[in-house]
Design a protein around this nucleic acid. Structure first.
Lengths: 222, 222
DNA sequence: CGTCTCTTGGTGACTTAGTTACATACCCGC
DNA sequence: GCGGGTATGTAACTAAGTCACCAAGAGACG
């Protein structure tokens, strides 16, 4: 089994395509590998093809003139970068940038082939639209949070999100501020307050959660 | 020419469909009319079909628990409500709401037919994706503005936007605050400051621009 | 016309968030 | 152990949002 067949295993919707299209996909699509830290797209750099991520994560963020940043979402392995693609297909300026957080491997599907896939497969359309939907809903949530939510609540949510099941988070205060579109000093103050209350411990570049229930409570009930 | 043919004039991409599909469109689509103030969709109410707006405008906004609001975008005549539709097609919760700002007339295309249109017409796909793209780009801009832009700059931009070519804007301070996701007091203060500088005059429910260049300058160069 | 009520806008004190401008502490290679 | 870069701490300040209340205007109605 060639490697070009292998990767389709990660995307069930693709496997149900008519054989003719599937063959084109194997032919025309390209597997790309990029090192950690690569800028996948952004002002100045833009892919002309639809990307399906096989391995790694891509962080999509926006940077203001003053240098402040906010993370909009992450693309995980098995997901498409549909939102970005849509932006590229439109005629509007698109100023967010995508950064490889890890070494990544992705399938690049040329625009013309992407168009044929959309036309010929109900499953593929479903796959793309569902991904869209999730992203857009997420953008709505970000807007609501940035506009209306207190920074301590947002920080608690983000810490829990980044920690997952682990206790430790490897991130500097600046990086946490960039996640939330806030300023480093603000995050430092909040973290110190959390530490004072015994909710977490801090070391250089590391935050260790010590009272998860307390953080969960703040994250949920303002 | 029946009225069902008439409305397609507003959407050139539709007219290039294969005759068979076009016939289905005339058959299966429904023209709906709703009075000003109707809630088109929102938590609790949701359309199950794709909407093409023929007349009027729809305001899409989000409301926080505390009652503060922010306007995300407006759907104008001749545009699709594609973004919303995508959200509805996905499985995620969708908490923004769409309000008819005027009396509106729209074509409702059932989901199954929408799917066939996407499959059979390159032009229709282009139409939908381009609309998507514009919306998403706009959402990115809103996030950037809410997160990083000063409120006086955002207010100046919004006033110019709402005024268009006219001098007068019919809106209460509360309504302007809702546009920007801010608070009435904050907007009142900013408007008073603008008025003090001679940039505008205020009457109950009305803002009249008297120094447009000054507002443009603030809106552009922070 | 006068009065009642609802909407709209004004104000001041206060809290929270972001900015500016530093100081200090930690880590790593040499 | 010593620089130099990175990370964090701190204080004073400005901007934005909140709270509590008041007052002016506009419309309704006897």
């Amino acid at each position: 089994m060639s490697s070009k067949q292998d990767w389709t295993l990660a995307f069930p919707p693709l496997r149900q395509l008519p054989e003719e299209i599937f063959a084109q996909l194997r032919e025309a699509s390209l597997i790309v590998e990029l090192p950690e830290g690569s800028r996948i797209f952004g002002p100045g750099q833009a892919p002309d093809s639809f990307l399906l991520l096989l391995d790694g994560t891509i962080r999509v963020q926006q940077t203001s003139e003053s240098g402040r940043e906010i993370v909009l979402y992450r693309v995980q392995a098995g997901e498409s970068c549909a939102l970005t693609t849509a932006c590229l297909m439109g005629y509007e300026e698109y100023q967010a940038e995508g950064i490889a957080e890890t070494r990544i491997r992705a399938v690049a599907i040329p625009r013309a082939l992407f168009d044929r896939l959309i036309a010929s497969s109900r499953e593929f359309r479903q796959f793309v639209f569902t991904a869209f939907s999730r992203r857009v809903t997420n953008l709505f949530r970000i807007i609501e949070e940035v506009a209306f939510e207190r920074i301590d609540v947002r920080l608690a949510q983000k810490l829990l999100d980044l920690a997952g099941a682990r206790q430790q988070i490897a991130a500097t205060h600046q990086e946490l501020a960039n996640e939330l579109g806030s300023a480093r000093e603000v995050i430092s103050r909040q973290l110190n307050e959390f530490a004072r209350r015994g909710w977490l411990r801090m070391a250089r570049g590391i935050v260790e959660i010590t009272d998860r229930p307390a953080l969960v409570h703040l994250a949920q009930h303002g």
